[in-house]
């Protein structure tokens, strides 16, 4: 069948095939130059900083490194970062799935506007995002007086940090899902409904399994950003040590106080998170790739 033919035919995207063919092979010099440029860039701008973070963190030995991490302020920063991510990621998971579902499976007025709006946190500077919340909830803001009167604290407190994180990480999951769900169309959901499934069953048994890899990918990216966000959180945090400092903010404070080893120690945690994220991301891409190949091999 077609599948067998597709497997026998050489993969047109395979680099080795391109390389093995005399007609398409580039001269050796071109190859060397391109590789040299690429690898130099990679080494200087990516590898070196990464190595530097860990080297600086461990410069004064493991003792100092661990001490910097278990110091109360650092622990508080780690806890707050985890809390913000633990709230922002599930919220965005729900928002993202709902938005992608609405946009791809229904037609309604204002759909195009909603698609544009989802990108807003990407297109606006994170500092502005933070400022928006200060203007709305801050002491001089729209609801400032009312909040103060009722003793609610949002700005310079944990809720503000969570809000800013949610705002900044909003697009990640929806952006991953929308193109995929648009490509998949509505046929399978319609089939499910004609077979007697409720809307919820169609979503749970048909839509969700079809997008699970994209969803996971979105969650990973969303989480990485939620933990690493600096700009928006910095504006609403107030930098109260041990209370409203997230890890990125804590790194900045330590660095400004010339505690380089401690700053790099906390920074190395964030770098580690990035590495773990990349590893999981690669794994998901590989799994999704395998799934897609099964899909294509028909």
């Amino acid at each position: 069948m077609a599948g067998a033919a597709a497997r026998l035919a050489p993969n047109p995207r395979s680099a080795s095939r391109f390389e093995a063919n005399v007609a398409t092979r580039d001269p050796g010099l071109v190859k060397v130059v391109v590789l040299a440029i690429g690898l130099t860039f990679f080494a200087v701008f990516l590898l070196m900083p990464l190595v530097a973070v860990f080297a600086e963190a461990l410069r004064k030995g493991w003792g100092t490194y661990l001490a910097a991490l278990i110091e109360p302020d650092a622990l508080a920063a780690i806890r707050l970062t985890l809390l913000a991510a633990a709230i922002a990621v599930p919220l965005n998971l729900i928002f993202g799935v709902a938005a992608a579902w609405a946009i791809t499976k229904f037609d309604f007025p204002g759909k195009q506007f909603l698609i544009t709006l989802i990108d807003l946190p990407f297109s606006v500077s994170p500092v502005v995002a933070g400022l928006i919340y200060v203007l709305i909830f801050g002491a001089q803001g729209w609801f400032g007086q009312w909040l103060f009167a009722h003793d609610y604290k949002i700005i310079f407190a944990v809720p503000g940090i969570v809000l800013a994180t949610v705002f900044v990480t909003f697009p990640f999951i929806a952006r991953e899902l929308i193109p995929l769900m648009q490509a998949q169309g509505r046929d399978e959901e319609e089939a499910a409904i004609t077979l007697g499934a409720s809307g919820w069953q169609a979503f749970w048994y048909v839509t969700l399994p079809n997008v699970k890899w994209a969803l996971l990918y979105g969650v990973i990216l969303c989480n990485a950003r939620a933990m690493g966000e600096f700009g928006a959180v910095s504006v609403v945090s107030g930098h109260i040590r041990g209370e409203t400092n997230t890890m990125p903010l804590h790194v900045e404070i330590l660095y400004n106080e010339y505690q380089f080893a401690a700053a790099f120690a906390v920074a190395s945690l964030l770098a580690l998170l990035a590495l773990v994220t990349l590893a999981i991301k690669s794994y998901i891409e590989w799994r999704a790739g395998v799934a897609a190949q099964v899909e294509i091999g028909s």
Binding site: D187, E188, A191, A192, Y205, V206, N210, E295
Partner: peptide
Amino acid sequence: FQHYALFRH
């Protein structure tokens, strides 16, 4: 359906 719409997973 014209394009089968089988549940691919």
